[in-house]
Amino acid sequence: MIFQDYVFYALAAILLFAGLRVITTRNPVQAALFLVLAFFTAAGIWLLLEAEFLAIVLVLVYVGAVMVLFLFVVMMLDINLDKLREGFWDYAPLAGFVGVLMALEMVMVLGSKHFGYSAPEKHGADYSNTAELGRLLYTDYVYPFEIASVVLLVAIIAAIALTLRRRAGTKHNDPAKQVRVKRADRIRMVSMPAEKDEPAEGEQK
């Protein structure tokens, strides 16, 4: 039990440090990598909470897919950092004040004495977190689950509608046309009578 506490505090400390570095580091690639670290430690904390499936999904989806995409974008775009940081110190005092105020409020309200829950009971080794999540998702929560799929569909439609352009003059091929093409479209067979005798070299001049 005491060992788990140590693990939790170590992971929490790394998570806080990584989160802080994400917003303070000057290099966007480093910021993205710190975010990866934050995701990993968060997954570790979820493992301690017996949410194994969610922890693995967090690593697979966020680290494996989202962050890789993110790094690609960061590396491909030429981001001017000085322009992004313009006005940072102008807003810093006000933002800091509001931030500290909100943090204090949360500390006051979110202590354990306000939440009257005892620790949940431990499950045995044969308990399947994944099966339980799946059962809930496809029975009790099937309605929001379906709505989530519609939201994803709308995201696809919107992304395509906003970015797909047909510019005049681009040299792209239409695969359907390419497949349907026949020999007759490309080659014109012309029957010509063969020349009887070839003129000699010097005669034309």
């Binding site: 929560y141 309605y143 929001p144 709505i147 989530a148 519609v150 939201v151 709308v154 995201a155 439609i157 919107a158 509608a161 906003l162």
Partner: peptide, 18 residues
């Protein structure tokens, strides 16, 4: 339900943004 209210709001907002 909080979830359905929120999901509906997100669906609406996403369409309006685009």
């Amino acid at each position: 339900h909080f979830l359905t209210l929120y999901m509906g709001l997100e669906l609406l907002s996403l369409c309006l943004y685009s």
